[in-house]
């Protein structure tokens, strides 16, 4: 099964690369499109650009990612805490939940300049927006997990006269962990997007700045290199969470029926 999966992944990657190179070739050499290099340059030439400008691009990416990661961690922590509070107290849930929903209706594109105007600090804005986008999926999924605990599992704790603290530590939190990971998987690429977005508001460093300047400055190769790096970072962030999930949730790994 594992071998099959690896083969599939390899074929899939090869397919994407071939398709990309094929379309780029089609644009440049068959349609003789003068804009071919801007519309879709060859993948290998983009990778060459990344390699040639590696320190410049990676420095920019690092600025964006480190702030995204900080915001992600803060947003996730706040999301988990609020979910736990809402699961303990019905009143807290009733008060907080409408605000949660409304907060998701404010377009982040509009919120980002407001935050920037308030704090007047690029790094802090990145962190706040990344945290803001992380917070909701984490809180909503975690709360969903806490509320899905089967009544029998709680009754078992009740029959042992377990204290609330023990019930949370030994039942509620471990039960909700897979739900939390789902929330984190959604939130991780979002936090990166948030950080890139704030870059574009007029930051000095960051991969979003590279994107914006190269787009208007006509440096098409740098632009495409930045796009590819952004995509790679987003995917990487998701893979890191999946890896963490595999380590933190070992009981999900093997689900083959046992033998008597």
């Amino acid at each position: 099964m594992k071998k099959n999966k690896a083969t599939a992944a390899l074929l899939w990657t090869a397919g994407v690369v071939l398709l990309w190179e094929g379309v780029a070739f089609f644009l440049a050499n068959i349609l003789h499109d003068k804009m071919a290099n801007a519309k879709l340059p060859y993948l290998h030439s983009i990778i060459y650009t990344i390699a040639a400008n590696f320190s410049e691009i990676s420095n920019a990416a690092l600025i964006t990612v480190s702030k995204a990661a900080t915001g992600f961690a803060l947003g996730a922590a706040a999301g988990i805490m609020l979910a736990v509070i809402m699961s303990i107290s019905k009143t807290a849930e009733k008060i907080a939940f409408p605000y949660l929903i409304i907060s998701q209706m404010i377009p982040v594109l509009g919120l980002a300049p407001i935050i920037f105007n308030l704090v007047r600090n690029m790094d802090l804005s990145r962190i706040i927006i990344a945290a803001y986008l992380t917070f909701f999926p984490v809180a909503a999924n975690m709360l969903g997990g806490l509320k899905s605990v089967e009544p029998e599992k709680r009754e078992l704790m009740y029959s042992y006269a377990a204290k609330k603290r023990s019930v949370y530590i030994k039942l509620m939190l471990p039960f909700s962990l897979p739900y939390l990971m789902t929330g984190l998987k959604i939130a991780a690429p979002l936090s990166i997007t948030a950080s890139i977005l704030v870059d574009m508001l007029g930051s000095k460093g960051g991969i979003g700045v590279k994107l914006l300047y190269s787009l208007y400055g006509g440096e098409k190769d740098i632009f495409w290199a930045s796009v590819l790096v952004c995509a790679a970072i987003g995917m990487l962030s998701c893979f890191i969470i999946i890896l963490a999930e595999k380590i933190l949730i070992p009981w999900k790994k093997t689900s083959s029926g046992g033998e008597e």
Partner: peptide, 14 residues
């Protein structure tokens, strides 16, 4: 002083 066995095993998966 009660030991309870439920209809489903109610084991903790983790």
């Amino acid at each position: 002083k009660y030991g309870i066995v439920f209809q489903s095993p109610v084991l903790y998966d983790w």
